[in-house]
Design a protein around this nucleic acid. Structure first.
Lengths: 147, 147
DNA sequence: TGGAAAATATTGAATATTCAACAATTGAAG
DNA sequence: CTTCAATTGTTGAATATTCAATATTTTCCA
């Protein structure tokens, strides 16, 4: 009854492939929307995570926004130049750096969130309410089961 | 009843984020398995698609393996060096190049497929038969609805 | 306590990807 | 037919990512 793909079955039957394909497509759509603000998807994630107002260490942030540490460091460098975020040394643990969002970053984050929400509304329109929620539920549980 | 995330809801409620996260995790697992053969995930895809024995043009192949054209060109260059695949000019349309898999490539493809299938079996064990199939179904239909 | 090991973030070199321009071929319209 | 636009694939420069090494601070434990 369980059917992982056979060795000779098409690649489109592999979960890993379907995930990559769906992610690529949805990400591209989001990227196009966010390009209105000239910002890559990763910066939306960073600003959104930081928008809880709390300081987040680089490591914590890297996990949350799905980036490797060095990649995040360099992207944050750019965002600091653009005055969207700033670094503060963590007084409790001076190895750590706490990231905060600036007012300018908050304002941009709001505009980006509108674009992201409107994308998801667009998906829900075409794909359906039920499917969307069910897919989200399954993805969450896949992620949980992978830890 | 439809609930796209609100502007202030956590990023983990966005479909785009959940897809990226799940894809990242599953892809990393697959990458680790394939590292036994010293091959990146994209080469597994290329070999698998070409393993139908037919010639595939670069454009066709790029779509199928989820790579941009220049990236594919350069990866194929490496695979040609490794004697895994080879190029043939399409006689019907001399703008095109048809890609074929070599015997060496076929042999490698078999080994890679075993690794990929075993990964998916492992997922099915933890995540369940029903969830896996349901997730695949939903991903396919999301992809369809996005064209 | 003292010193080795672990954790955290950054850096620089090596590698990979992307963007824009190009070359070659085909299709299509006058 | 002939010329102009569209398609296909590659290239080189610019950009981004990754890997390994480093610096700093903290934790552990002998």
């Amino acid at each position: 009854m369980a059917k992982p793909p056979k060795a000779n079955s098409p690649i489109t039957e592999h979960l890993a492939y379907l995930l990559a394909q769906a992610n690529r497509e949805i990400n591209r759509q989001l990227e196009m929307r966010l390009s209105k603000e000239g910002v890559p998807v990763e910066q939306w994630r960073i600003l959104k995570v930081l928008s809880d107002g709390n300081g987040h260490s680089m490591g914590e942030l890297a996990d949350a926004v799905l980036l490797n540490h060095p990649t995040l460091t360099k992207m944050v460098d750019r965002m600091v130049s653009d005055a969207l975020v700033y670094r503060v040394q963590d007084p409790k643990d001076r190895r750590k750096v706490l990231m905060f969002v600036s007012d300018r970053g908050k304002a941009l984050s709001k505009r980006l969130n509108s674009l992201a929400v409107s994308q998801e509304e667009h998906i829900v329109e075409n794909y359906g309410d039920k499917s969307t929620n069910e897919l989200k539920r399954l993805l969450e549980s896949l992620i949980d089961s992978s830890n």
